[in-house]
């Protein structure tokens, strides 16, 4: 900040209750999304068959998290107009008037460059390139292009959130393998039902913002059908993964229980009509959304357990 802004006329006794604090800049990084990025990237890194020095692994995960956060800041910069009219997002730092759009842009670009360069220096340039591509995909392909253009926005855009385990794997191995692609596919297939459930119970938000979510363009009945179909496809993929090199008996047990619950949740959503939802305030949809968070963490947790067990000669089907 320049001296002029400190000593300028706005400094003379006016209220500063809206001045950005450290937490507001941190909020630009979407910390809740970051937990997903950190966890899935850590599983990708730890499940890889190449050992990484613990401090290098810690730094790599940190840089991946910063890269994910930077893309969140750039998303808030571009979507400030949408965020201002949506109940769920109107308290974010830009619509709340704490941080300006230009500040968010500078913050996001600086952290993007920082995270990619330091991930490359800490691990390898393949992983850094994958992180750069992830940031590009989330900001340019999803945020700038798909989000306001097509109801398939979160289907294709979900790829951005699915890359972190591949980056973690690449940190350890320097490349891509079937296992890391399977972890990508799991997150990729999980994203649509997760977000469509959210769109069902945050029903007015996307209408007001003019975002072409499936609920807005094709209606809520079609969205319920899509949730069921995508959940069935996800369940087939998640259970099939148990019989690949990433899976094993522990993973299979977790996958069977959670996918049974998830399919049951999707079926409940599918057979409900809007009148019932209004009466119970979208109870089934909210429950499904919460379950979806547990679903992903538990699946990746199981992959991690299988990888740890294999270190003792116990993991997998061998």
């Amino acid at each position: 900040m320049s001296d002029a802004s400190i000593t300028g006329p706005e400094f003379a006794g006016k209220g500063y209750e809206n001045e950005a604090q450290f937490g507001d800049y941190f909020a630009l990084l979407k910390p809740r999304v970051m937990t997903l990025v950190v966890f899935t990237a850590a599983v990708g890194l730890l499940a890889a068959p190449v050992a990484v020095h613990p401090f290098v692994a810690f730094c790599a995960i940190l840089f991946i998290a910063v890269g994910g956060g930077a893309s969140g800041a750039l998303n808030m910069w571009w979507d400030a107009d949408i965020d201002a009219v949506m109940t769920r997002t109107k308290r974010r730092p830009i619509p709340a008037g704490k941080v300006t759009r230009d500040e968010a842009l500078g913050f996001g670009l600086a952290l993007s460059g920082f995270s990619v360069v330091f991930l490359g220096l800490a691990s390898n340039w393949f992983a850094a390139g994958l992180l750069a591509f992830t940031i590009f995909f989330y900001v340019v392909i999803y945020t700038m292009w798909l989000k306001r253009w097509t109801p398939q926005n979160i289907v294709i855009g979900g790829a951005a959130g699915a890359f972190p385990p591949m980056i973690g794997w690449a940190v350890a191995t320097g490349g891509i393998s079937v296992d890391s692609v399977l972890m990508f596919c799991l997150t990729f297939m999980w994203t649509p039902p997760h977000f469509w459930a959210l769109a069902l119970f945050m029903r007015k938000d996307y209408d007001h913002a003019g975002v072409p979510m499936l609920t807005v363009t094709h209606g809520r009945r079609v969205t319920r059908n899509h949730i069921l179909v995508y959940t069935l496809l996800l369940a087939a993929l998640a259970i099939a993964m148990a019989f690949t090199s990433a899976g094993g008996p522990v993973y299979l047990s977790v996958a069977l229980v959670l996918n049974a619950l998830f399919v049951k949740g999707a079926y409940d959503i599918w057979r409900r009509d809007e009148e019932i939802c209004e009466v119970d305030n979208f109870r089934a949809e909210r429950k499904f959304f919460k379950l979806s968070l547990l679903y992903l963490f538990a699946h990746f947790g199981a992959i991690l357990i299988e990888a740890v067990l294999s270190g003792f000669g116990l993991g997998g089907w061998a």
């Binding site: 604090q21 450290f22 937490g23 941190f26 401090f55 290098v56 730094c59 940190l62 220096l121 800490a122």
Partner: peptide
């Protein structure tokens, strides 16, 4: 609060770079 947060972040950054250098 803002200055303290920034100071701690910069301190952590120095510690990370130092640690990485030692490991490498």
């Amino acid at each position: 609060g803002r200055n303290l947060g920034l100071g701690l972040t910069l301190g952590a950054f120095i510690a990370i770079i130092f640690g990485l250098t030692v490991v490498k």
